[in-house]
Computed example of a mutant assay.
Amino acid sequence: MIITIEEYLHKYFNQFEPALKKILAENCTIKTFEAGEELMNPGQFFKSTMLIMEGRVKLYREGEDSGEFFIYYLEPGDACALSMICATRNQTSQVMAKADEKTVVLAIPLPLMDQLMREYKTWYYFVLETYRSRFEELLKVIDHVVFRGMDERLEFYLKNQAEKNHTNQLKITHQEIANDLNSSREVISRLLKKMEQNNRLKLYRNYIEWIG
């Protein structure tokens, strides 16, 4: 079944005023990304900003050694604050965004952004709230990187995965966890085994069962 822009906006962005929904429906386009497909890359200029309608997007920061560090997820009802900032200032992206599963976004053309900020209060407040919530996400990341050990970071990561996926059966490999936490597979495997011994989780061949 094909879902229209109006239906998506009503479901996930119903706080928008009717006139705002109308202009978005008339000027924006729906884009679909398959799991693993990249939405943006470091060094890329933006032609639009994105509202997430379906699926989930994972944001990474790439290191000089080509390593990847997981920042946070974007889910239905969210917007990419970084793309908003870079777009309005005509700057390139400093992060990589990848579809964690099949994802549908609403692409908002850059020329429309200034008009939305000037004329629609619900968009203005939505942008402010997006900046605030993403800033809080970044503070959590900094807190765990600077002030927590890898065991605590791993526990927070697994708990977050269970909450975001709405399941305790996490189909993620030790290497994927290591990539997200900028660690090694050997370290992650050792810590997972220790957590299993402490009855925090159970390790299976194809998934991890989070007990918490």
Rank of each mutant, 00 (worst) to 15 (best):
V104K: 09
K31N: 06
K140A: 15
R89A: 04
M40L: 09
Y12H: 14
Y73Q: 06
T49V: 15
R153F: 00
R200M: 09
K102N: 15
D151Q: 01
E17L: 02
P76M: 06
E137Y: 14
L9I: 13
R118F: 10
K202E: 11
I142E: 11
I2M: 04
L39K: 02
E119C: 12
G55M: 10
L154I: 06
E7P: 11
I108D: 02
G55K: 04
V127E: 10
I71Y: 11
Q175D: 03
N160K: 12
F69T: 12
F33N: 05
I108F: 08
E119N: 11
L9M: 13
P111D: 02
F147K: 05
I142D: 14
L82K: 05
Y131M: 08
A81D: 07
E209L: 06
A19Y: 08
V141H: 08
F147L: 13
A97P: 05
Q115Y: 12
Q44R: 01
K194E: 01
E136Q: 11
C86F: 00
I52K: 02
L158M: 08
E6I: 14
F126P: 09
I108L: 10
K11F: 07
F46R: 01
H10S: 15
A162H: 06
F45V: 08
L192Q: 00
W123Q: 02
I188H: 03
T167L: 05
Y125D: 15
N14G: 13
M40G: 01
L24Y: 00
H10R: 15
S183A: 03
Q175G: 01
W210K: 00
S93F: 05
C86M: 03
A107H: 05
D114S: 13
T92S: 15
L170C: 04
T88K: 06
N90Y: 08
E137K: 15
Q94W: 07
V146P: 01
K102R: 13
V95P: 03
